[in-house]
Nucleic acid binder design. Structure first.
Length: 270
DNA sequence: ATGTCCCTGACCCAGGGA
């Protein structure tokens, strides 16, 4: 029996928050941690801090730093690493994938940071929203479909809360970017096209609230609890069957100088 | 719902992005 524990976290600057990244690695000991919004050039990534904790393997796509950026911190050797540009944009680092060997099987994890999309949910007047919709279309066309010999996982900040109970108020957020019908439909189309299983919703019933993000702007985020589920873990069906646990580490939203996202952690047994 | 936080570039603040 082999187990695998993975975590995904929009960290909102890995340099600013390297201490709470260390805290997550120490307290949760995931085999792999997938980060989004690292805002950090690869050469500036604080790898040595994480090496001290036994994480020796890194896959970084930080571009020129400053904006966006994704990275993977791993205890397991990475047998393959792949970065890709989406929407024909250079210098817009939003994807990196890694492959690891688990229980004699090669397994790939795709780490995404989908564009947030700005404020106005109209692609005709908002280029950022147009970019987000195009990004989702390209994800759908490009991501591999389910195959038994290459079980894949998708993780990341997909910046869409697709279901009614993924937001604090479905009605109030229908015209708010992240929960508009067109985004929800497009994200759902990506998931269905690839035959992916929503691992978070496998563990949390559709009728229950499920959030991974709470705005910095709320006076008391926990009391207001106006959250959204922007972060996701998807797996191919055969792999989703092996999932044994799922947690949103809400407490991390209150750690010292927190990210506005909480880590999402999934465990698998093979 | 215009509030908070982090980045850059250039200066101790403004503007962009989320």
């Amino acid at each position: 029996m082999t187990s695998l524990k993975i975590a995904t976290w929009n960290i909102n600057s890995v340099r600013m928050r390297r201490l709470i990244v260390e805290r997550l690695l120490n307290e949760e000991a995931p085999d792999l941690l997938f980060l989004q919004e690292t805002k950090c050039q690869d050469a500036q990534f604080p790898s040595s801090d994480f090496r001290k904790l036994g994480y020796d393997h890194f896959a970084l796509n930080g571009g020129r730093g400053g904006y966006h950026g994704v990275g993977v911190i791993s205890r397991l050797p990475l047998v393959d690493v792949h970065s890709r540009d989406f929407c024909g944009k250079g210098g817009d680092p939003r994807y990196v994938s890694v492959a690891v060997e688990v229980g004699g099987q090669k397994l790939r994890v795709h780490n995404f940071y989908v564009p947030a999309g700005g404020d106005e949910p109209d692609p005709a007047i908002n280029d950022k929203f147009e970019h987000k919709l195009r990004f989702l279309d390209e994800m759908k066309a490009w991501l591999p479909t389910a195959s038994p010999d290459m079980p894949d996982i998708v993780v990341g900040d997909l910046n869409v809360a697709p279901y009614e109970q993924d937001v604090w108020s479905h009605k109030a957020l229908l015209k708010i970017v992240s929960h508009t019908p067109i985004e929800c439909e497009k994200l759902e189309a990506v998931r269905e096209a690839g035959g992916w299983v929503d691992v978070m919703r496998k563990f949390v019933p559709m009728d229950d609230k499920l959030y991974s993000w709470w705005s910095y702007r709320a006076k008391d985020w926990r009391a207001a609890d106006k959250g959204r589920r922007l972060d996701h873990i998807w797996a191919h069906p055969a792999l989703a069957e092996k999932a044994t646990g799922l947690r949103v580490l809400k407490d991390a939203r209150d750690w010292d100088r927190p990210s506005d996202h909480a880590p999402v952690i999934a465990s698998f047994k093979f």
